[in-house]
Design a protein around this nucleic acid. Structure first.
Lengths: 138, 138
DNA sequence: ATTTTTGCAAAAGGTTTGCATTGAC
DNA sequence: GTCAATGCAAACCTTTTGCAAAAAT
């Protein structure tokens, strides 16, 4: 979702667009799963240092509006991503970094088509791979 | 993996099989993702109440030996499962319970066959669904 | 002027660590 | 007898909450 659309949604809902909120949204719009401790230095770089509480609150705010997604990754930290094209993640067993991956289209479609198994209705899925990322694979 | 095999592996490694360790392994061998707070009452039921620290330590011990798997589920708690048949999870959006699911065999095989994407080597995957479980689906 | 957002400090929630004691082999 | 497992308390780390001050509309 482009940042402009997010700003529009916030405006429609009569939510305020403060400098810090804007900076957090802009940061999130860059690739990669984001955790609070990754976001904080980004904000400082942009000349809008914020308290971590603010960032936590902002992430919950955006998540509750459905504008970002919480990821379920190993470790204690919470990670979020702006809702973009459907994709999956690879956690590199060597460098521990998280990369975004896209599945082959056929497989992707097959997964999306799974809507019912064992009397369970399926509305969404998270697929996470482990292995070696392109850098560590060399 | 059957509990007997686990006991054998522990024996081979000259690790001790204490009553509490055995009770924890037996508990884990029952279906479902297990967190510390789910395991504790099980141990009490079996007449072997344990301190939560013990359970945390035991789970790390078993995980480090590769006998159980840590799951990546929403929330702050850690969940583990004994390595069984390959399967996936559904997190019910209504009752929040976690169910085990098996994918259609074709899809399962296709996923397993994904070993290389974008210069990344893939060795494993976790697939987690959200939706409504069989009970909430009625 | 009113309501939200922000920062700070403190609390909460889950997990880990240090250390003395108990128990397995 | 030796070394690992256990319980307890305290520390730890990430996230949340309460409250007063600042900023947005």
């Amino acid at each position: 979702m482009p940042t402009k659309k997010i700003y529009q949604i916030l405006k429609d809902r009569e939510e305020r667009l403060t400098p810090r909120r804007r900076a957090i949204i802009e940061t999130l719009s860059k690739n990669g799963p984001w955790s609070v401790d990754l976001i904080l230095p980004e904000l400082k770089k942009r000349g809008l240092p914020a308290n971590k509480t603010t960032v936590y609150r902002e992430l919950n705010f955006l998540n509750n509006l459905g504008l970002i997604n919480e990821l379920h990754l190993p470790g204690r930290k919470k990670y979020y991503e702006i809702q973009t094209e459907h994709h999956h993640h690879l956690i590199c067993s060597k460098c521990k970094k998280i990369k975004q991956l896209k599945l082959p289209a056929i497989l992707c479609k097959m997964l999306a088509d799974v809507t019912y198994i064992n009397n369970c209705t399926i509305t969404n899925h998270h697929l996470e791979f482990s292995g070696l990322c392109n850098r560590c694979n060399k």
